[in-house]
Write a protein that binds this DNA or RNA. Structure first.
Lengths: 260, 260
DNA sequence: GTCGAAGGGG
DNA sequence: CCCCTTCGAC
């Protein structure tokens, strides 16, 4: 089974590129982030024509997640609330950042973790609060079955995951507190699929548009698959496909694919 | 000599299509309207690389005209003021709608005539006032040499030039007053090059984006070449190329070419 | 429908 | 740098 994750930065703008990529890489599951479209306007049909079942949870302008799956998903839900209840979740489901379903007794959890703006900002606090809810949500789901938790985490787990880590310890996506949140996920029993087979740095999944970072390969590895032990041990490959980032009008992220 | 006119609805957005068209149709002169860009930001270089001299008169967001010419232009000017003086022109040169130069003893006058919004509106009055100044401007230039007056006139000269003329006599681009303004130009000695060789209706140069008018061929012929007698008698062909209007992300207008 | 602008976001 | 929205224009 191949499961890919890709922050597409607007599915309507990236539709043709995603279709072309799926034709070349007919993965079993594709998890999308930043679809930026309400469910009614999601361009489902072309992906359904490719043989995918399409599951979406979107909002206007911002955020939004989706799962394309060759097999229909079981036990599908959106947001934290169906698992944790409104009491615990509060308003953390207002932004559409979580979508999940089960395929072959594996629960896929597709997340778009808040960016956090800058360390210490209000949005940073929201990010950290979001991680706490995510932790509780995962704890509940772990009682059921194996989990593939993937998506855009907006965190580079360690210094190998940044083109130049010097002076980045107070930088968003690299602060100790954000990395602790990743460690907490690992403590639950999740392991970084990419790091099973790739031990070197220098492989990235996101390059900032603003500084023309891609042409200088000033990237970050912030898109991940975190797997429970039963899946992790079966991982045969995990790689980043930078080709889509080289196209005309690309997303700032590029797909990451795990195979097990 | 071939002279084309094309309202491109933003030269920056249409750059590649105009380049592709010029490669297929290496006309001697291309007159553009609605370039929608200040002169500093006009993408001159790709057209110069094709062998054209580039003359521009643009403004931010709206209007804007340009001439591409295989031979450099003589006696080049922009607006009415160089010919009529500020006294007569008033503020009619604030909007960039006129550009002119001489090639092979022929004066090219490229115009983007105001749309006029709706009959009786303030913008309609501006359009009619603009026609009056144009008339005076042409009278002056007629003392010099033959003239090719071309561009987007925003007027369908007669009922053959509208897909369905019924009930259009109070419609913008078809009102008696606008058609009188075209008649006044003819009275100065100009003749509609397209009508020398095409007597039937049903050939259009503009189709509204809004109503998907192109797919239903609900068009208007509002882009013209008006020629003085010495040129008109030499006209060997005049045709509308609808291919560019069939492309992806087209302008709402398509090129019209005269040959003499 | 499509354009450019302006403003918010990353 | 690129996306989205809202706006006026045609």
């Amino acid at each position: 089974m191949q499961i890919a994750t890709w922050n597409v930065n607007s599915i309507r703008t990236r539709k043709e590129q995603v279709l072309a990529w799926l034709n070349e890489h007919p993965v079993d599951v594709l998890c999308l982030q930043e679809t930026k479209v309400i469910d009614r306007d999601f361009p489902r049909t072309p992906f359904e024509s490719l043989g995918y079942s399409v599951y979406v949870s979107g909002q206007k302008s911002y955020n939004g997640v989706a799962i394309f799956s060759k097999q229909p998903l079981d036990s599908f839900h959106c947001g934290f609330t169906p698992v944790l209840g409104e009491e615990i979740v509060g308003n953390y489901d207002e932004q559409k950042r979580v979508i999940s379903g089960v395929i072959d007794q594996v629960r896929i959890v597709n997340v778009y973790i808040p960016n956090g703006s800058s360390v210490g900002s209000e949005k940073y606090d929201y990010k950290m609060g979001w991680f706490e809810i995510l932790n509780q949500y995962l704890e509940k789901l772990l009682t059921e079955r194996e989990i593939c938790l993937c998506g855009d985490f907006n965190v580079a787990p360690d210094d190998r995951d940044i083109y130049d880590p010097t002076g980045k310890d107070n930088h968003i996506m690299a602060s100790p507190q954000e990395r602790s949140a990743i460690e907490a996920i690992k403590k639950l029993g999740f392991q970084d699929a990419f790091r099973k087979l790739n031990h070197e740095g220098g492989q990235y999944s996101w390059w900032d548009y603003r500084t023309r970072a891609f042409s200088k390969n000033r990237g970050w590895r912030i898109d991940h698959h975190f797997l429970t032990e039963g899946l992790y041990e079966k991982v045969s490959n995990c790689w980043i496909d930078i080709i889509p980032r080289q196209q005309e009008k690309p997303s700032d992220h590029t797909p990451v694919i795990v195979e097990f």
